[in-house]
Design a binder for these strands. Structure first.
Lengths: 147, 147
DNA sequence: ATTTATGCTTGCAAAAAGCAAGTGAAAACG
DNA sequence: CGTTTTCACTTGCTTTTTGCAAGCATAAAT
């Protein structure tokens, strides 16, 4: 399934980005793919932020539509699908990296994060290669306590 | 006016960014400040994207609340206010830059944009200094034709 | 004194997100 | 083979956010 990408109503580089991934959820899905190597619907659903099933479906369709991710059947399990970053999606890694860098200056940085930030400074190429290869670059966060 | 920043419900660097500037308008306001040197309410309103007055007011309050921008009375015109980027706001420049870089690979790049992108590659420090000084780094886009 | 500029606020409509439940097809289980 | 479970959604409804048009308050200009 592949629709026409929607027309962006403003001829501006920032507006293009906002239209493409600037909603409440798209960047979190991309984070799951780039940092944690997630590739399946139920993996995205399991994130700490608790996205609703219908919203996730809509976002995945939109990202696919925009050419950021692609969707294929899992060859090993015919009822499952695997989502992957396209080249256009992998190219978003520097945006994710700069957001992490910025946020890290304004929140507590634990050991997991410190390690990743150090690697961003010292092995940027390696990180980009891992993202391209869909290798996780950070251990997943502990699941938040159930209510 | 300065409220407590709102509590972010996920302990994640990307979620922090999304909570802070990840809505449909904040990045466009920051673009107006960083690229075009805009500093006033009616300048933001005049952007091509047509933000509603109440939404702009809400976004400015939120950004101020998060410590990204500050608001002062214009000393020369007592009914006007001037918004400025704080250090925390200036620190977002690399995010804006990477979004522009990414978008430029996926849309037509005209001469204005080409020039800025070249300067990003060759004079990054100069750009960051201009953003800090609130000097425009790009000519404003032509206003879109009225309907 | 009246009009205009500036930066909003208010009230209501429309769109998007959130929640709970249900669906359909493939796989696993007995 | 029949039933249950898994997986990836969809549907219907409520709540929240966004968008639009109008109005308002204060300062400045005429």
């Amino acid at each position: 399934m592949k629709h026409d990408p929607k027309k962006h109503d403003s001829d501006c580089m920032i507006a293009y980005g906002v239209d493409t991934f600037g909603d409440r959820w798209s960047l979190l899905v991309l984070r799951d793919m780039m940092l944690y190597g997630k590739r399946r619907y139920n993996e995205f659903l399991a994130s700490n932020e608790q996205i609703a099933t219908n919203v996730l479906a809509t976002r995945l369709k939109h990202l696919e539509c925009e050419g950021i991710i692609s969707k294929e059947r899992d060859p090993e399990n015919r009822r499952s699908f695997v989502y992957s970053l396209t080249e256009k999606g992998v190219a978003l890694a520097p945006v994710i990296i700069e957001i992490m860098r910025w946020s890290s200056s304004h929140m507590k940085v634990n050991a997991r994060r410190r390690k990743l930030l150090d690697r961003i400074d010292n092995d940027r190429e390696g990180i980009l290669a891992d993202i391209r290869a869909q290798t996780p670059i950070m251990p997943p966060p502990p699941p938040r306590a159930a209510l």
